[in-house]
């Protein structure tokens, strides 16, 4: 018999529950230097940001009728800023914000 320390356990065959809403084993918010900032006044809900985001970091809040940004996973690629049709999105330096802290212990 072998003893596998708790912190080293791997499920049988490494078959893991698939992420349904988010992949907590690969948080990518710390890839970001610049973030997209939305001006809700200018947004016409064209949803380009939702369509173009490679990581599904823009979602529609139907109750409020606005798009919502996900700081935990946004890598700061700024494709959404580029694709925004109404210039509602703009680029801002991450250190100018107190929020959006991920601070993982290890990168991967």
């Amino acid at each position: 018999m072998f003893i596998i320390p708790k912190e080293k356990e791997v499920p049988l065959g490494c078959i893991t529950p698939a992420p349904v809403t988010e992949q907590t084993m690969m948080i990518t918010g710390n890839w970001r230097e610049y973030r997209p900032v939305i001006d809700q006044e200018k947004c016409n809900l064209c949803m380009n940001c939702i369509v173009y985001c490679p990581d599904a970091c823009w979602q529609l809040n139907e109750a409020e009728d606005e798009v919502v940004w996900n700081a935990k996973y946004c890598k700061g690629c700024l494709i959404c800023v580029n694709e925004c049709t109404t210039e509602a999105l703009s680029k801002a330096y991450e250190l100018d914000f107190e929020d959006g802290v991920v601070r993982l212990e290890k990168p991967f």
């Binding site: 918010g29 710390n30 890839w31 970001r32 230097e33 330096y93 991450e94 250190l95 959006g100 802290v101 991920v102 601070r103 993982l104 212990e105 290890k106 990168p107």
Partner: peptide
């Protein structure tokens, strides 16, 4: 890159009395 400080515990494993060098145009307090 200074923005890394929000994403990673950069001092992980450091014992008291260490030094941190950061590439930034901001002040140490920031």
């Amino acid at each position: 890159d200074a923005t890394l400080v929000k994403g990673i515990n950069v001092l992980r494993g450091m014992e008291k009395g260490g030094v941190l060098v950061v590439n930034t145009d901001r002040k140490p307090e920031d």
